[in-house]
Structure formats: C-alpha cells, structure tokens
Amino acid sequence: MIDARRRILLKGSLAAGAVGVAVGAGLLTPRIVLAAWPEAAFKAEAVDAALQSLLGSSSHEANDAIKIKAPDIAENGAVVPITVETDMAGIKSISIIAAGNATPLVAAFDMGENAVGFVSTRIKMAKTSDVIAVVKAGDNVYSAAKEVKVTIGGCGG
C-alpha cells in the first residue's frame, strides 16, 4: 500500500517536472515578436545608415508632437538621462540616436499594441551632439532632435 502511494507520488512529481522544463525552455510561453538583434544598424557609423538598416528608410519628418527631455548640458557623458514622449497614435517603435557617437544608434524600442508613447533611459554620449528620437507611427517615420552639450565624453578611449 505504502509502496503504491509512493509510485503515484513519484509519477505526479515527474509529470510536474516535465511541464516545468517545457516552460523553462520557452515551449509554452508565447513567441515574442522581437526579431533578431539588428547588428548592422547598431554597427552603422552614420545616422542615415543606421536608420536605413533599422527601419528600411532613412527619411524622417520632424514633428513637434515628439518631446525629448534631456539636459542642455551633461557634465558626465557616461550617464545622460533621456526621455522621449509623444501622444501620437499607432506607435510601432521609438529609437534613440546620439548623432556624435561612433555608432549613433543607441536603442530601438518596439512597442506593443497597448503601448503609450513614453520611454526613458540613460545613455552614453561621446561628445556634444544632437540626440534624435525617431518614432514610427503607422507607416510614417517622425523625428525630433535636441542638442546636448557634453563636458566629459562617456565612451572611454
């Protein structure tokens, strides 16, 4: 009797273990829409080349609906707080570019259906330059730029 119970217990825990492994391996979680890391875009050394590679087009239209919150003067280029905010509808992605960096593309945020146009992060800047926020909304690409003066560059070297 005791032996039979032990069998059942063992079977039960084995089954639970198998489900756990499946979840851990990502078999049961929904597949993420995220594409592979766009290496070419992040390695591009010019703003246009990075955008061309990332979004398939380097053209973008300046738009006042995009607000960039960044310091006018950043004393430490290693930590420059950047906030991009927009109330546009149908936002698909928000990309942040530091024009003066060796590789200008800093980050690309793909937004889900429920996204609100707001991202905030801290970036490294090598020297004084424009920070460009590129927003893809529907099929259109909009942008805004703000100059940040950098006292001490933050990309080492």
């Binding site: 979680t29 929904p30 829409v33 930590v79 945020f109 793909d110 937004m111 429920n114 970036i123 490294k124």
Partner: peptide, 15 residues
Amino acid sequence: DQTVMAAHWGGTIST
C-alpha cells in the same frame, strides 16, 4: 502573454 515592449540595445546605454 502579450509582449508590451521589446527593446534592442547597443553598448551605448549607460552602465
């Protein structure tokens, strides 16, 4: 089960 945000980053995000 929904991805609400998916970001690609380069090395120029701060430490």
